[in-house]
């Protein structure tokens, strides 16, 4: 069981990122989220939703889903430079735990305003 993202529905509002950050830090911050909306290609209007799972990096792009095994070739460059333009690269963060300590399940799913996130 895991989180599934429909990037065509995503409006890049970052609510999932902040909800995940809250789950990690008990405050509002964006540095610990294991889900993020890539915003580095603003002029091209191109973004993806990237999720770090226990064993995989899931990249939900508008044109299709890519799943990379963590530790595989190419992971570092794409994870750090292209998809993940952040101060703390996603690969250095804790993987998704599906908000296991929360009765209502993952917070990112609950805070997505356009229902772009669901459970697999």
């Amino acid at each position: 069981m895991g989180i599934k993202v429909d990037p065509k529905k995503c409006v890049s509002c970052m609510a999932c990122e902040l909800a995940c950050g809250y789950h990690r830090d008990d405050g509002f911050a964006l540095l610990s989220s294991c889900i993020m909306v890539t915003r580095g290609r603003e002029k091209k209007d191109y973004s993806a939703v990237v999720l770090k799972e226990e064993e995989n990096l899931v990249i939900a792009r508008p044109e299709g889903l890519e799943i990379r095994k963590l530790g595989s070739t190419g992971e570092a460059s794409s994870g750090r430079e292209k998809e993940d333009a952040s101060a703390k690269p996603l690969l250095l963060r804790e993987p998704c735990d599906l908000c296991g300590d929360r009765e209502e399940g993952p917070l990112c799913l609950q805070f997505c305003p356009v229902n772009a996130i669901s459970m697999n």
């Binding site: 911050a29 917070l107 805070f111």
Partner: peptide, 21 residues
């Protein structure tokens, strides 16, 4: 920036945000 904003009643605040949403 990469600040952390603390919340007086974290769970109460987040629960209420969820209700509004």
């Amino acid at each position: 920036g990469m600040s952390l904003l603390e919340i007086a009643d974290p769970e109460g605040f987040v629960r209420k945000c969820k209700e509004f949403l």
